[in-house]
Amino acid sequence: MSALAVAGAIEAGLLFSLVALGVYLSFRVLNFPDLTVDGSFPLGAAATAVAIIHGVNPFLATVIGTFAGCCAGFVSAFLNVRFRILNLLAGILTMVALYSINLRVMGRPNISLYGENTIFTAFEGVIDLGIWTTSAILLVFAIAMKLLVDWFLGTQVGLALRASGENPAMARAQSVSNGRMTIIGMSVSNALVGLAGSLFAQSQGVADVSLGIGTIVTGLAALIIGETLLGSTKVFWATLGCLIGALLYRLFIAAALSAGFLGIQAQDLNLVTAVVVAIAVILSQARRNSRFKFWPKMRSLLMDTQPQKG
């Protein structure tokens, strides 16, 4: 694997660690299976790209992209809380609507940011690490957002948010409004995803309407890998897991692509992602549910041994 491929994988990993943090907030903390992500990621990219080609300061453009994601999360949460639409469906509705909205925002299917001012070109004068410059900047963002989420979940609102996701009845008895918490949590979650989209567009130099397909699955893959490695009970480790999970996942994909492992090509990425997530979920369930003995079954299948007779 070339250094360039490694750098690319690390960039993608760091970008998706932001998605993983968002998915952690919705899926895990709030217990809200949010599919808005597939729409809010390209929305962040689209909003930022349009702002940048209109000459807006790239930092402000990044804020705009983040805020756009935040609004998308708000809409899904509002549909769920105010109109009692099933959370899964609320996310899907927003996601579908966002496809059209993203086309409207951009005015065309994609926008190239080649040669435009982005936050990466702004930093290039300050730090120059060759092909690692983008990774370094993204690393700062990823760590900053991890720490921000850690801090947020430790505040009074953050505690209420965690309680609301885990035990709504108890949260209510402690004067927590579960609806309000869903709205706050979903907005923050999708703001992170919008930020990821915004940084994606700026680092890759393009915003595309089809960018979002599979974002949620990649985010989940990163989250689950992180949980498996670092555990999921303490916030600090869970958020660190998002970072490490996303990095490992993208590096693994890059390695598989470059080695021609099983003939995997770039277009197979979403299939591979889905399969990895499915296997990870099955394994984590197998570990929790002792009646479902996955390994003994697998072992007997693989080794083709008959159960010994006593």
């Binding site: 430790g154 505040t155 009074q156 609102v157 953050g158 505690l159 209420a160």
Partner: peptide, 9 residues
């Protein structure tokens, strides 16, 4: 019963 803020809990 009180308004929750962004202070460390």
């Amino acid at each position: 019963g009180s308004r929750r803020s962004l202070r460390n809990a």
